[in-house]
């Protein structure tokens, strides 16, 4: 009887894990990778120090990506839409500015259009569960904040260490290069931006 219970427990666990996996990855199952659609943009601003980023931001937060919502903006001529993605970020701490809720909506250019994922080559979309530090500009007309300088204003926390987007990408060069943190600790990072 006990052996049967253990067996049943293992089977149910496997089933649950499989279902969780399907939920996490089903967004990507519909994406047709073979079409290789990509976006390149010309960035308006260039940041050469964390201090500049901090000074230019309205809000700076440490948080975690909770959910992803795709939306598209139809262009004036109606020929197509440009894909955007809104992320709900759970705020763990606010390093600058004022946020009234415990979540904030942050947008990135790129997203899902006709079941195909479009991504900016040097600014890949955030993923649910990502732990991030975001330097944000003021809330804009769609009720969300954009990240300052695209990939430049986003840092990822891995094992309590902070990395810029360029450091996590295989390319050797990147617009984020002058902001590379070489994986400093979160404490050192927050000290740096306030110094």
């Amino acid at each position: 009887m006990k052996k049967n219970n253990i067996f049943l427990f293992i089977i149910i666990s496997i089933l649950i894990l499989t279902l969780i996996n399907i939920n996490v990855f089903d967004v990507y199952e519909n994406i047709d990778d073979t079409k290789n659609r990509y976006i390149d943009v010309s960035w308006v601003k260039k940041y050469t120090s964390l201090k500049d980023l901090y000074n230019d931001s309205y809000v700076v937060i440490i948080g975690e990506v909770l959910s992803t919502n795709y939306r598209n903006i139809l262009v004036k001529s109606n020929v197509t839409s440009v894909p955007f993605t809104d992320f709900v970020i759970k705020i763990n701490s606010v390093l600058k500015g004022f946020v009234s809720n415990d979540t904030i909506v942050v947008s990135q250019t790129g997203g899902l259009l006709n079941d195909v994922l479009f991504m900016i080559r040097d600014d890949p979309l955030m993923q649910n569960g990502d732990k991030v530090i975001l330097f944000l500009n003021k809330e804009e007309k769609y009720g969300s904040h954009f990240i300052l300088g695209g990939p430049q204003g986003r840092f990822v926390i891995l094992n309590d260490h902070v990395f810029s987007i360029g450091e996590l990408q295989p390319q050797t060069d990147s617009i984020t290069k002058s902001l590379w943190t070489k994986g400093i600790t979160l404490d050192d990072f927050t000290d740096d931006i306030r110094s």
């Binding site: 659609r37 976006i39 010309s42 308006v44 250019t109 479009f118 500009n137 954009f146």
Partner: peptide, 18 residues
């Protein structure tokens, strides 16, 4: 297709979509 449009404070001035 080339078109000027208002996309708001996205951080980019021009976008190329293949």
């Amino acid at each position: 297709w080339v078109e000027p449009d208002d996309f708001g404070e996205t951080g980019w001035s021009g976008i190329f979509i293949a």
